[in-house]
Design a protein around this nucleic acid. Structure first.
Lengths: 241, 241
DNA sequence: CAGGTGGTTCGACTAGAATCGAACCATGAG
DNA sequence: CTCATGGTTCGATTCTAGTCGAACCACCTG
């Protein structure tokens, strides 16, 4: 009867309020404890433990013990990718009652997707990088060009160190709100981290929203424009804050 | 509490045996009647009617009335895409008991994904097309090159007619078994149709498997090889490297 | 050591969902 | 018109899965 892999198990797992809430919370890329998760999901500790067990079984999340805490996180970028795909579809399926809450616009503008930048800003930065040939789409996958390497280094990111890590260096990820791609992988992760280091943007507490300061957004674009700014040196940029 | 779109509804919908079976069956791209679906899902007519109602509500499938029959099909390529993504994840999550049934190898080799070719053959054909510059990955999306147009026309596909249709002309689609991309969109659809027209491959009854004749597979590759097929100049193919 | 907090296990309760039998409504064939 | 067939609706049944209360274990702190 059933050909192919067993979709049902995974889908059913996600198709529960509490668990979906957990997974969404973990989309922030943060590692959270069981009680924190219980809190955001709005259930008791016992219940969350039950759910976390199931998610672990299925390999959707992983744990790391640290003292008497257990930190849970998504098992990998694949999972985050699936969740974003689902959101992209759900946003249509919702149809009638689409309550665009107050946080929603901010969420569309810029948010964290697992560990990299997503939303309007995420895709426009990514597409800009393609246009200006910092990144290049190659049959085998996305590639960092030589000038891209220079750009990232000047931005204060050690691309060589990243490349030697085991995780996928750079790849694209589908954005649910924009329905276009943004940058993911080690490079995407490093980019966002650096942006936060420079104080250009901050994460909103308990949310996936990322708020750019007006200044920060301007500086980012300045950094990307090839003519207007021969890449601002990292130190110089950092001075601002 | 919950930010972003409501994943739960969609996921829960897929997370049921009968409905997942329905969706999988519709991945074949065929339009099927309610009783056919009831049959493949292994439930009675009443039950399938119930499930189809839910899937319709959520906009995952659509109906078309024809006489006293109602033909159901997937609502669009997005849905197919989501399902493939899910399969890609499930294949890992299954872990221990992965019963690779007898049909499985055939399914990995070549299968239909909504309406285009997937599996080993699907991705290698697609990647070959990129290498030989029939298709080109462009920041805005996938593009058919001029020489690609010629190639498709010689293959008996009227690309201009396709381009004027409303649906997305050509795009890539992630392959769950290969974890790489294959060709989708109107162009991908036309390609598969033409291959079947030529008798190079046939669909297995009641399954997503596509069986190529030894002859057919050979002819397809001959068609793609740059030296034997004039449209692609060796020069342009070499440009990539 | 005792006390407090983070997490899990067990058992029982409950709500919701899937299922089917049976009756019902349409459409097409003869 | 009558009969057969494709589908839906309704009601009743069954069962699974989420939930919590309570007890329990593990670890850290004082």
């Amino acid at each position: 009867m059933s050909e192919g892999p067993n979709i049902v198990r995974v889908a059913a797992l996600i198709g529960d309020n509490a668990r979906a809430e957990v997974l969404s919370a973990l989309m922030s890329g943060r590692a959270l404890t069981a009680t924190e998760l219980a809190d955001t999901a709005g259930v008791t500790k016992q219940t969350i433990s039950f759910h976390l067990g199931k998610l672990l079984d299925a390999g959707l999340i992983t744990v790391e013990q640290q003292g008497r805490h257990r930190y849970f996180r998504l098992a990998g970028p694949d999972i985050a990718n699936l969740l974003e795909t689902l959101m992209g579809l759900a946003v249509h399926s919702e149809g009638s009652r689409l309550f665009t809450g107050p946080r929603d616009p901010a969420l569309r503008k810029a948010r964290i997707c697992y560990d990299h930048l997503a939303g309007e800003l995420g895709v426009s930065v990514y597409e800009h990088m393609l246009r200006t040939n910092i990144l290049h789409q190659h049959p085998g996958g996305l590639q960092l060009t030589e000038q891209g390497r220079v750009w990232f280094n000047q931005f204060g990111i050690d691309t060589d160190a990243l490349a030697s890590s085991k995780r996928s260096f750079c790849r694209e990820c589908l954005d649910w709100s924009e329905r276009r791609h943004h940058l993911a992988g080690a490079l995407g992760s490093a980019l966002l981290t650096r942006i936060q280091e420079l104080g250009w943007a901050k994460r909103e507490k308990n949310s996936r929203v990322i708020v750019f300061s007006a200044q920060g957004e301007k500086l980012l674009w300045a950094m990307l424009e090839p003519q207007s700014a021969p890449p601002v040196s990292a130190q110089q940029a950092a001075v601002i804050f």
